[in-house]
Design a protein around this nucleic acid. Structure first.
Length: 933
RNA sequence: GGGCCUGUAGCUCAGUUCGGUUAGAGCGCACGCCUGAUAAGCGUGAGGUCGAUGGUUCAAUUCCAUCCAGGCCCA
């Protein structure tokens, strides 16, 4: 007879092979048809809200691995908060305006660009953004990210555009917004001001020149009488010399007066004399005096090219790293130059036009492109004898992020939001301390940035964006805006979008009797600059959180990469504090960047980029989700083929563990077969105790967003607690007992409870697989149609039993020693399978008493054919435990025959003449089965 | 150059808060068992001068300093 047929072996259609790349899209389709997201909303009505407000990715290009990381993290959080009992609405968004899209539309248009109207151009930008929104939306959905994909927020929606304009006007109405000339990064090729975020630094070859600035005033040193005294400056931007207004020296440095032959002397920082003279090729020199820098302040030099004075000023940004310690200062062409210029009341003089060419103001070089003018200027300096030395160097220089060309500093009229006029900086700093920053160092990071940042330049001279909806007086240039006009603009934008600003005349927005407050004039100029896109996304709290009835302000959480301390967290904070006095978020979570196996950043040029699509096509989105969960995202996180392969392996392990439990639940009905806790054997109670530990640990980790803790806990639970221990031991009971026996039903009850908990715990992370398992689980009345409609498990206090657990932990330790002893016997070819062995365990008194209570069960627990326990005797030839004192383990091959049914070697085998190959235990079961049917 | 952060086995993570016995886990690897979770399952074992160097200390992976490597942001 084939006794195998009398066993209860696992049966399941749940496939061992995940086939994620095929099955995931099918699952997504089912969820969509079933309208899962809407169903979740319906059942969550009235629950407390948890709002993670999405930072909008830019609507350009395909998503990259960093975007995937970000969106998956958000999804895990939203799903886990939802399953914790919140109503966790997720409204994804896109950032739609801005230079990159303009550039790409430009590129597509090519030469046709010249004949196109601004309105048509903006229309093309809009449809370009739409195209990529659709592409990215599909990519995000494919990752398993759940949200309001049918109704995302777009910064180019008419309603959104109208709110951008409204929020911008709020700054104007309280006088925070002002117009001022200030040097800003300027791209001569794009003809636009650039924000900090639009600048990249690359190495660039530059001329490096040393120039004499003859001192006009008497320095008051007798030795210098009748000498030609020159301050020597160093610059790598000769083209800024025409705009020179000052020479800066450090107040604490000592300056040397160096005689170089004939009647000429140089003044430069004492510490730099030797290195400079080497560059100048002057070997015959002597220091004839030293000057305290402070004595030179306010003295004047003559400009080396023009009949003009240049003031000597003191500045701490002067360094000894390079140059001469005397710094050429052009307040219209440099950030620090401008700042120090303010103190000395110097003009931000900037005689350069928008194309980067000198204006007519500039004698000798007018009309020349500044970078091309460098050589001419050097020649001219040579000609006038002002040039001391000339080299070429390569150094880090700012470049435009789009066209990659070097940029210049140029003073132009721009719109600024003042950081200090209305106390924005101070209020923002206060608010930072009311926000929870995760990790905590995020606070230091953004605090430092807000503390030190200059006024926010919000204007751009471009086409694709929301205009700064302000007017200024045709006559006196003072700003004109009032509530009535703001409302009118808002209404029009709401109806027609921001395009209407460019299509209508100024008068159409203003009332007939509008009059300049300052000069009484009644004609106004409409500003045509557009807003920095950081302002667009920065007001999402107003345009999304406040506008949608299913959201709330402030958000519970913002979650982005750590670059957003300067980006979106920053602009959101400023717009919210400036208009509402509060931060728009209660907490801010940041993640690191995705780097390669060596910890280096990904870049196309290095060729170490891993695209999410590649991972999905090869492994499935589930593996990418598992990767996100397995990594500690607070630091940079690595991805590589090796890492993905490893995750793939652990995924299979988790999957198979679920599959095994499903297979053993094929005939289990939780309604009728559930065994009460009190009737369970201790090992089952212990299994339930261990499960409570897992639940507590993972719930806490979800609470604190430490998903890698969940991954490790879940994975170790599956391999160690379940696969290698509980489930392995359970096999005998599950397979050989009568199907409806209490011992088998007890095991099934526990497995059902475990599987139910495990599947809920994994649902926020392994969303596809959890749903797949959920569908294969035995149905019960209360069971939701999707795991994502259910809740995370709750720890059951009454199943926690610390005392019992301690006993079992001791048994597990002994078990570890037994397996070592078995392995030793196996190596000596005494046994093969552990069931071939019988074991004698000799333990000291203490351990003996602990084990004694379970003497009958040791055989099962160790998965061997027999275990006998003796107290304190030394066993010859036994395995001596090194880890547990007084423990000897003697392994011997079982002498009895092996039961053909349960594979256990038992003396009862052969006693029954009808079934000579069967043990008495199985004999009983077979009898029972016969009676049953 | 400045601000913020990171560096524990081949990989993913623990541990270090308040310094103190042989620094843990799993994967991977090697070897073995099983063939009733089977393109599965079980077991044993080998892997770490805790980025480097100095300092404080009876004692440092843990505290301090410097350096090196890497990341983000800025210059």
């Amino acid at each position: 007879m084939d006794y195998k047929k009398t066993l209860n072996l696992p049966v399941t259609k749940f496939p061992m092979k995940a086939n994620l790349t095929r099955r995931e899209p099918e699952q997504l389709k089912l969820w969509e048809e079933y309208r899962l997201y809407d169903n979740i909303r319906n059942v969550s009505k009235g629950r407390e809200m948890f709002i993670l407000h999405d930072g909008p990715p830019y609507a350009n290009g395909n998503i990259h691995i960093g975007t995937a990381l970000n969106k998956i993290l958000k999804d895990i959080i939203v799903r886990s908060r939802q399953m914790s009992g919140f109503d966790a609405v997720y409204v994804p968004g896109w950032d739609c305006h801005g230079l990159p899209i303009e550039h790409n539309v430009d590129k597509e248009l090519g030469s046709k660009k010249k004949n196109i109207s601004q309105t048509d151009f903006r229309r093309l930008c809009r449809s370009y953004a739409e195209k990529y929104i659709n592409i990215q939306r599909e990519e995000f959905k494919r990752l398993g990210v759940m949200g309001e994909w049918d109704n995302p927020y777009l910064t180019m929606n008419y309603n959104y555009e109208s709110i951008i304009a409204r929020e911008c006007c709020k700054f104007a109405l309280d006088n925070s917004l002002f117009r001022s000339k200030k040097p800003i990064h300027w791209c001569c090729s794009c003809k636009t001001a650039l924000a900090e975020a639009e600048i990249e630094h690359h190495d660039e070859p530059s001329p490096s020149i040393f120039v004499k600035f003859p001192l006009i005033d008497d320095p008051g040193i007798p030795a210098l009488k009748d000498k030609k005294v020159n301050l020597i400056i160093w610059t790598t931007t000769p083209w800024t010399l025409p705009a020179n207004l000052a020479v800066a020296i450090h107040p604490d440095f000592v300056y040397a007066v160096v005689e170089t032959g004939d009647d000429e002397v140089f003044i430069l920082a004492k510490d730099l004399v030797d290195s400079c003279m080497r560059i100048f090729g002057i070997s015959d020199f002597s220091i004839i005096a030293e000057i305290d820098a402070k004595k030179l302040e306010h003295k004047k030099c003559r400009h080396p090219l023009y009949n003009r004075e240049s003031l000597i000023i003191l500045a701490v940004h002067v360094t000894l790293d390079a140059g001469t310690g005397c710094v050429h200062t052009a307040p219209g062409h440099g950030r620090e130059d401008y700042e120090i210029g303010l103190l000395y009341e110097l003009d931000p003089y900037s005689p350069v036009n928008e194309k980067g060419c000198f204006t007519d103001d500039v004698e000798f070089f007018k009309g020349q492109f500044v970078f091309k003018a460098n050589n001419g200027i050097i020649d001219k300096l040579q000609e006038t004898g002002a040039l001391v030395a000339q080299e070429s160097i390569s150094h880090s220089y700012p470049h435009c992020w789009r066209c990659k060309k070097p940029v210049i500093f140029r003073a132009t009229p721009q719109w600024f939001i003042s950081m200090d006029k209305t106390g924005l900086r101070e209020k923002a700093l206060d608010e930072i301390d009311r926000v929870e920053w995760i990790p905590a160092w995020g606070r230091e990071r953004i605090y430092g940035m807000i503390k030190n940042r200059p006024d926010w330049c919000v204007s751009r001279q471009r086409a694709w964006g929301v205009p700064i909806t302000l007017f200024y007086c045709e006559k006196c240039e003072s700003v004109f805006i009032n509530h009535e006009t703001v409302n009118k603009i808002s209404e029009l934008f709401e109806k027609h979008g921001a395009d209407v600003w460019f299509e209508k005349q100024a008068g159409e927005f203003l009332s007939q009797n509008a009059v300049c407050q300052k000069c009484g004039h009644n004609k106004f100029i409409k500003e045509t600059d557009i807003l920095d896109v950081w302002f667009d996304s920065g007001v999402s709290h107003a345009a999304v959180l406040e506008e949608r009835s299913n959201l709330k302000w402030p958000a519970d959480l913002y979650l982005e990469g750590s670059d957003q301390h300067r980006g979106w967290f920053h602009s959101s904070l400023l717009t919210a504090v400036g208009t509402r006095g509060r931060a728009p978020y209660k907490s801010v979570l940041t993640h690191g960047f995705v780097v390669d196996a060596e910890g280096r950043k990904m870049s196309k040029s290095v060729g170490n980029v891993i695209a999410p699509k590649k991972v999905i096509d090869r492994y499935g989105a589930e593996i990418l989700r598992l990767w996100v969960s397995a990594s500690d995202y607070r630091d940079d996180i690595r991805i590589s083929e090796n890492i993905l392969q490893q995750l793939s392996d652990s995924y299979r392990r988790i999957r198979n563990t679920c599959r095994f439990m499903l297979g053993n639940l094929y005939d289990y009905d939780p309604k009728t077969d559930r065994v009460p806790y009190e009737s369970m054997p201790d090992i089952d109670k212990f299994a339930l105790h261990k499960l409570q530990g897992l639940i507590e640990k993972t719930l806490k980790a979800y609470e604190t967003f430490e998903f890698h803790v969940i991954y490790h806990a879940l994975y170790n639970y599956c391999t160690l607690d379940l696969s290698a221990f509980y489930l392995d031991i359970l096999k005998d009971r599950l397979y050989t007992s009568p199907p409806q026996s209490i011992e088998r039903r007890s095991a099934q009850t526990v497995m059902y409870i475990i599987l139910d908990s495990v599947v809920r715990i994994m649902a926020p992370i392994l969303s596809f697989t959890a749903e797949e398992v959920w569908k294969f689980m035995p149905d019960i009345k209360e069971k939701e149609s999707s795991v994502h409609l259910s809740f995370l498990p709750k720890a059951n206090e009454s199943w926690k039993n610390e005392k019992l657990a301690q006993k079992w932990e001791a048994i597990i330790r002994v078990r570890g020693e037994v397996t070592k002893a078995l392995e030793e016997a196996r190596a000596k070819k005494k046994i093969g399978h552990s069931l071939d062995a019988v074991v004698t365990i000799s333990a000291n008194k203490e351990l003996y008493e602990e084990l004694y209570a379970y003497e009958e069960d040791l055989r099962t627990i160790f998965i061997i054919s027999g275990a006998s326990l003796i107290k304190g005797e030394k066993l010859d030839k036994a395995y001596k435990s090194t880890d547990i004192e007084g423990l000897d383990i003697l392994v011997e091959p079982a002498s009895s025959d092996k039961c053909e049914r349960c594979w256990i070697h038992d003396p009862s085998v052969g006693l029954n003449s009808e079934r000579p190959t069967i043990c008495s235990r199985c004999e009983k079961v077979l009898e029972e089965l016969k009676l049953g049917g």
